[in-house]
């Protein structure tokens, strides 16, 4: 188990190195950093100082190594909007984003798995038809419009929930459900297929022959065995979920990393954008690692290969 985790962890630096290289390339493509950091009224002394500080007089590979060293020590430069180190600005907003993504993930997983199980248990009957049809239809739904519809209905019409911003749990409900909608339809359909396959397995008959109730057979024996494709799917979709989080934060004015990055693009605050991208990448890599570990905990056979 430990060996497995360690081997998986070895991929982390490789992935981050790759992202850093992409970021560095883009950073240099963005144009002369001097134009980014200094305004029109710059003096020659400022330019000279910045050239030295950013090592622009060195060759490109050397610049990359220096950049890599800075990135590894968390130095992305000063934020132009806030006058603080960019990484601090980003990390301050990280909590809000993690809260939103975690809530959405939980909602999507719990509702999706339960609904998918209902489909499998009532295969070709009314609940299956309703839920499956709804799930297929929901795949055509743009989540950014779904968010706006939810605001119109629950916040403006019914006045049950606040329209935007962050505060108590009632602020979290609408954004979390909007973000959950990214994964929910697929989780339902995957659970349905996987569950139907598992229910045909012989060990399910063994479990019934032991005297377990239908619910015990479903939750103790069938569900854990049907879980692998669902966990793998969630792992593959974490990147999409992060992308969705950026959109959801924009709709609901949720003060997370996504909204910060979008705002920073319009302020041309490149250090913050780059720091944000790297932090999100770290989260994706770590989440994928967590998914791999979760898979191996759920299924002992995975540890072998």
């Amino acid at each position: 188990m430990l060996k497995f985790t360690l081997r998986r962890l070895a991929y982390v630096p490789v992935s981050l190195l790759f992202v850093s290289a992409v970021l560095f390339t883009v950073l240099r493509l963005t144009g002369n950093p001097i134009d980014t950091y200094l305004d029109i009224n710059r003096t020659d002394e400022q330019v000279a100082a910045l050239t030295k500080r950013l090592h622009l007089d060195q060759s490109l590979p050397v610049q990359f190594l220096i950049y890599l060293k800075d990135v590894l020590s968390g130095d992305f430069g000063q934020s132009l909007q806030f006058g603080e180190p960019a990484i601090h600005v980003v990390l301050e907003r990280a909590g809000a984003s993690i809260q939103l993504v975690t809530a959405a993930l939980l909602i999507a997983a719990i509702i999706g798995i339960l609904a998918g199980m209902a489909c499998a248990v009532f295969k070709d009957k009314l609940p299956d038809f309703l839920i499956s049809t709804l799930a297929v239809a929901a795949q055509s739904m743009p989540s950014f419009w779904l968010g706006i519809l939810l605001i119109q209905f629950f916040a403006v019409q019914l006045r049950w929930l606040p329209t935007s911003g962050r505060g108590g749990w009632e602020n979290l409900v609408l954004p979390a459900f909007t973000l959950a909608a990214y994964l929910l339809p697929n989780i339902i359909l995957i659970t349905r297929t996987s569950m139907l396959e598992t229910l045909r397995e012989q060990f399910v008959v063994t479990a019934i022959a032991k005297g377990l109730s239908g619910r015990q057979v479903l939750f103790r024996h069938a569900l854990p065995n049907a879980l692998n494709p669902i966990i793998s799917f969630i792992g593959l979709q974490i990147g999409r979920l992060m992308g969705g989080a950026i959109i959801t934060e924009t709709i609901f004015a949720w003060p997370g990393i996504g909204r910060l990055m979008i705002g920073s693009i319009f302020q041309r605050d490149v250090p913050v954008v780059i720091a944000g991208v790297l932090i999100v990448s770290v989260v994706i890599v770590v989440a994928n690692l967590a998914v791999d570990i979760l898979l191996s905990i759920n299924d002992p056979r995975i540890r072998l290969d």
Partner: peptide
């Protein structure tokens, strides 16, 4: 009823099957 039958399955009448490879839950000890 299904409930009454459950008290007999595994307790008074037990079963073993043809395929020992697939009859056990692969992910439970």
């Amino acid at each position: 009823s299904e409930r009454e039958l459950r008290r007999i399955r595994g307790r008074e009448i037990a079963m073993i099957f043809q395929e020992p490879m697939t009859s056990l839950n692969p992910i439970a000890s």
